[in-house]
């Protein structure tokens, strides 16, 4: 980081936060503080929804994942547009007309108090588990690349987020999200332009795409029916749709974005904008990663992208040297084969292209094998078990090859992506804590001003909780990621109960409550006893909740029968 980089980073952060606070003046009632007085235009909600979903680790990991595994991860998002259409037709009008602060408040209107309590408890557990990781993960990556103490990064990022979220409520969160998303777009475009400009002069963008394709990095669509393959067209369309329905329809950190809309139409537009923009955006991020891969065909990358891990195995000379020698030879062979392929392509020589392509793929396999041996050496020398340097690839490229100012912009993107996610999380956790717990069960008839200050205090509490959780992250090690994984096991249950609420008129509170417990048991059984990809857990949980809910309603004469809200 040079002086210009620090200037760009500090300047963009100060501008974003100042603008957010300026736009949030007058957040002096609970309704304005938590729902922006229902005045938000569609474009602000749309960018806020997008910024909340795009966490720092998504941005850092996605480019690295494309470098290592190609672009097939984009299939994960194929179900998102379908989910947005379904939610626009169902959840948006129902939540708006129910005039609720939280999605779980609607569960009491439709079912009963115990179903609302269970729904809000599941959300608090699930989000509470993951909020620390949103702060911890980027701090660790920045610590590895720049040597910045992760505690300092955590404290600075956390303090900034708490400050503007506590002062300005959801208006500050939304308007800072808008600016943060614009910084992310700018950073992405700059990254793409820079990586193409940094390719050797005799390698065109078309050549680069052919080389990435030859190495399997442009395999975007897989029509395989393998249940254990995480990313296929089918797991994306079906599993991805259920995951998006759960996340955007039942998770208060997203629902609260579109509850602030000035009308049902504006809220629908915000979701449908995401339906149109999200898949191309992810494609673009992955494509940047694929181009970084091509860049490193002609510029030798380090054996491992995590500097500390590389130093650790370099210290073990006798075991490291043969791996490094094989790696260097494979790199040279691959570079030569790539140059030969470009020559043959220009001469329009199919035989030459086929020969050089075979050598290129062989060298790529040898290179991958040497990198795998390097990762194994890290583990054997007492380093991180399950070592993986995917998260460090893109930032390593940025810091080595981008000119002054651009590095600061990319780090601003990392900060923006992290802060936009954390602010939405602590804002929604505070909302559910006050509306669904405190105002419902503890203090039922206090003044609006009392609940406004309670909301501010709850925001401070959840912000400090996230910072503490992230601060202990290093001691927890890989446990913190396991905890985040556990958080994702609750989504299917929440989706199931909202499907019952919206579509199954004869199911009452008892059916919904028992269905939720059965759905959660089914998800935990799938997690503990099968190898099914996690994308299918939501489908399993949702189906079990609906089936058990209907069964209880069918066999129980005492089921409360309230009509489902009409659209």
């Amino acid at each position: 980081m040079r002086a210009l980089d620090w200037l760009v980073l500090a300047g963009s952060l100060v501008f974003i936060i100042a603008y957010g606070l300026y736009r949030s003046r007058g957040s002096n009632t609970v309704n304005r503080y938590l729902l922006a007085g229902k005045t938000m235009p569609w474009y602000a909600m749309a960018l806020s929804i997008m910024a909340t979903q795009a966490s720092a680790i998504t941005f850092i990991s996605t480019t690295g994942q494309s470098y290592v595994d190609g672009m097939r991860f984009v299939q994960f998002y194929f179900g998102l547009p379908l989910a947005m259409v379904i939610l626009s037709a169902t959840a948006v009008p129902i939540f708006h007309r129910a005039n609720v602060y939280t999605a779980y408040e609607y569960l009491e209107q439709r079912f009963d108090a115990k179903t609302r309590a269970l729904g809000s408890l599941i959300f608090l557990l699930q989000r509470g588990f993951s909020v620390g990781l949103s702060l911890y993960a980027p701090a660790i990556v920045l610590a590895v690349i720049f040597g910045w103490p992760d505690q300092w990064t955590t404290v600075i990022m956390g303090t900034l987020v708490i400050t503007y979220t506590v002062i300005g409520g959801i208006q500050a969160v939304t308007w800072t999200d808008v600016q943060q998303m614009l910084v992310i777009f700018l950073g992405l475009i700059v990254s793409m332009i820079m990586v193409v400009l940094l390719l050797p002069a005799d390698v065109s963008l078309l050549d680069a795409m052919h080389l990435a394709g030859a190495a399997g990095r442009l395999n975007v669509v897989s029509t395989s029916f393998d249940w254990n393959d995480r990313y296929t067209l089918w797991s994306g369309l079906i599993g991805g749709m259920f995951l998006a329905l759960s996340y955007f329809g039942c998770d208060q950190s997203q629902v609260q974005r579109y509850l602030t809309g000035r009308s049902i139409a504006q809220s629908k537009l915000s979701l449908l904008f995401n339906a149109m923009a999200k898949v191309p955006m992810q494609f673009f991020i992955l494509f940047v990663g694929a181009m970084v891969f091509v860049f490193y065909i002609f510029e030798k990358p380090p054996l491992l992208f995590a500097p500390a891990a590389l130093s650790r195995i370099e210290a073990d000379g006798p075991r490291h040297r043969p791996v490094e020698t094989r790696y260097s030879a494979a790199f040279e062979n691959r570079r030569q084969a790539a140059s030969d392929w470009i020559d043959a392509h220009r001469r329009d020589s199919p035989d030459g292209q086929a020969r050089s392509l075979a050598r290129f793929r062989q060298a790529q396999q040898e290179l991958d094998a040497a990198r795998a041996d390097g990762a194994r050496l890290v583990q054997e020398s007492g380093g991180e078990q399950g070592f993986n340097d995917t998260n460090y690839i893109f930032l390593s490229f940025v810091t080595r090859y981008l000119p002054a100012g651009f590095v600061g912009l990319i780090i601003a993107v990392i900060f923006a992506a992290a802060m936009s996610t954390i602010s939405a999380e602590i804002n929604s956790l505070a909302t559910v804590s006050i509306i669904d717990v405190y105002r419902r069960h503890v203090r039922k008839d206090a003044s609006d001003r009392h609940y406004l200050w309670a909301s501010r205090l709850a925001t401070v509490f959840w912000g400090l909780y996230a910072m503490s959780f992230a601060g202990y992250g290093r001691k927890l090690g890989s446990l913190i990621e396991a905890v985040n994984m556990l958080g994702s096991l609750f989504y299917g249950t929440l989706l199931g109960v909202f499907v019952l609420a919206f579509f199954m008129r004869r199911v009452g509170g008892n059916g919904a409550f028992v269905g939720m417990l059965a759905g959660e048991a089914a998800i935990l059984a799938a997690f503990l006893f099968t190898g099914i990809s996690f994308l299918w857990y939501n489908v399993i949980g949702c189906v079990v909740v609906v089936a058990v809910g209907l069964a209880v309603a069918f066999f129980s004469d005492g089921a409360k029968r309230r009509p489902a809200a009409s659209q």
């Binding site: 547009p81 259409v85 030859a214 395999n219 975007v220 449908l272 898949v279 191309p280």
Partner: peptide, 28 residues
Amino acid sequence: WRRVYFAVIFYLGVLIVLFYLFMKAFSS
């Protein structure tokens, strides 16, 4: 909103087909 919803689903279908053609064009 029916037409808007169908347009979004049609758009997704077009995107998937374009991605497939993109993959085939460059996986020489």
